[in-house]
Amino acid sequence: MKLSLQKITKIYSNGVKAIDSISVDISPGMFGLLGPNGAGKSTLMRTIATLQLPDAGKVLFNGQNIFSDKTTFRRHLGYLPQEFGVYPKESALGLLNYFAILKGISSKKERAKIIDKVLALTNLQEVKKKRVSTFSGGMRQRFGIAQLLLNQPKVIIVDEPTAGLDPAEKTRFLNVLRNIGSENIVLFSTHLVEDVKELCKDMAVLNKGKLLSQIDPKTATEGLKGKIWETALSEPEMVRTSVPFLKLSDRYNENNTLVYRIYAEICPSEVCTPVNPKLEDYYFLMLTQA
């Protein structure tokens, strides 16, 4: 099973290139799409979910162009958009039943069975008769997962699903996702590096519509071994060294000192200490180099 994006491009009517010739191959497992706000992640997600026509390029699922027969592809698709609402006055049960009908589960018995299962999976059993419009944010996201699981999708697209969730909810959510991601393609977009680090076996970094890199998280951090440094020197001070470096990020340490993380092939200064590379370093490196 493979999802293959070939030179996908999308240009909006105001001239903005939301996606710029992106090519990437995605195999079963969790695939993280990382990028800052406005990178084009949602546009890419919507395109793969057949909800937006690309201006150029193809998306192949098992060798078939998904845009030539969108309905067939949608049979294997589960999609959770970044922002979604629900019909008022509809219970979780009622709305899931509606979605199940849409997804082609024509037997009432089978619908009841699958709905039970997805409610259990997402721990919404106790509130199944409650109106979805009254759910908390986390419960709503779980409902979103529940609906996408109804048709046992092979391709799951979740667009920034953990945005706005508290740590407990987020953990629950990611656990559910991990569970279902083992045998299927799960394309998961986020701007939070730690989500990708935890879950994904493969990832891509996007910025300003362009694909900056595709790599697995482990390899990404491995490649930075011995090249990441920390220093308390400010950038203007660092500039005096002769070794080229790139500032990746900064943070305040426990002593309230501003500490910089930098990338350099060799140690740029004696005041720089080597540190273990993190995925964030790779991410920021990609963004900085772009």
């Binding site: 219970s91 082609g104 589960i105 089978e110 299962k117 569970n179």
Partner: peptide, 27 residues
Amino acid sequence: KDPHEKKAAAAYPKVQTDPIRDIHLDY
């Protein structure tokens, strides 16, 4: 008042691990 209002689950969930199988999708 929602007639079906119940308290939302507060505790940590049990993680369901049984996969979903044997659902017939009819097109």
